[in-house]
Write a protein that binds this DNA or RNA. Structure first.
Lengths: 135, 135
DNA sequence: ATACTTGCAAATGATTTGCCAGTGT
DNA sequence: ACACTGGCAAATCATTTGCAAGTAT
């Protein structure tokens, strides 16, 4: 929070609310959801998320289609696997994909992250042909 | 093309144009771009892409933010790595990520693809602190 | 002749911008 | 006080839907 006031940004009520909501959220949340929950104007939520993102306190992910989903930045970032069949979201703990990251690094030179776009694929249950899942 | 008429879908001029443009394109193209290039209404392009996608002839990718980008389905799909610093797109040949896919499969049970969301990360040049890239 | 298709207008969903009144510091 | 913020209206971007006229089969 000191980060903000050090940059001349204020700790307004709305800002505090957004930060608080993201802090207690156990999953990524959309801006619209936040606005609704906190009774703060959507515009303000977006603007707050934007400054928080700019200062590296917040980030957003995209699971399948749909709006961006916001999370607090924690230093050790979670990554996500999204099943585009049943829409299940699997959270990957920080570091868990590091070997994979290293491999891509070696092959392509890129330092990749799955913090912005989830890993998309079909989950175990959905790949079993017998018990069909929701479309 | 036989796929279409077998399903009662017609090979209209617009449809043929879209298919043709995607066939000769050497990179994923947006619907708006296609509409502009082909002088076909955006709506029609979207509708055509939708049916082509529904019949598995076309798919779309998301590199960073921005509109969906369409490509012809080829059976052996290319995947993409996107540098979110310099916006460079690296094409990954079909199968090249299979070892990685197997590894994820073993660890998480998911069969992932990078055909819908690109692999996002910082490319080799951009990770060199000396010569700075475009913001 | 009968569906599928087209273009144009209008709606939708996500996000951004303008503007002025309100408020943290 | 001054500059950063809030809400509300309106704009923007990507995409979808409604509808009447057009066309492939």
């Amino acid at each position: 929070m000191q980060v903000l006031r050090a940059s001349g940004m204020r700790l307004s009520t709305a800002r505090r609310l957004v930060l608080g909501a993201l802090f207690t959220a156990d999953a990524p949340v959309s801006a619209v959801q936040l606005a609704e929950d906190l009774a703060v104007d959507e515009t303000s939520v977006y603007r707050n998320l934007e400054v928080l993102e700019r200062f590296g306190l917040v980030r957003h992910v995209h699971l399948g289609h749909g709006p961006g989903l916001y999370v607090l930045v924690s230093g050790a970032e979670r990554e996500y696997i999204y099943c585009d069949r049943c829409h299940a979201v699997t959270t990957v703990l920080p570091g868990e994909l590091d070997p994979l990251r290293r491999r891509i690094r070696r092959s392509f030179g890129h330092e990749v992250r799955f913090t912005h776009f989830a890993l998309v694929g079909v989950c175990e249950q959905c790949s079993q042909p017998d018990r069909l899942q929701a479309l």
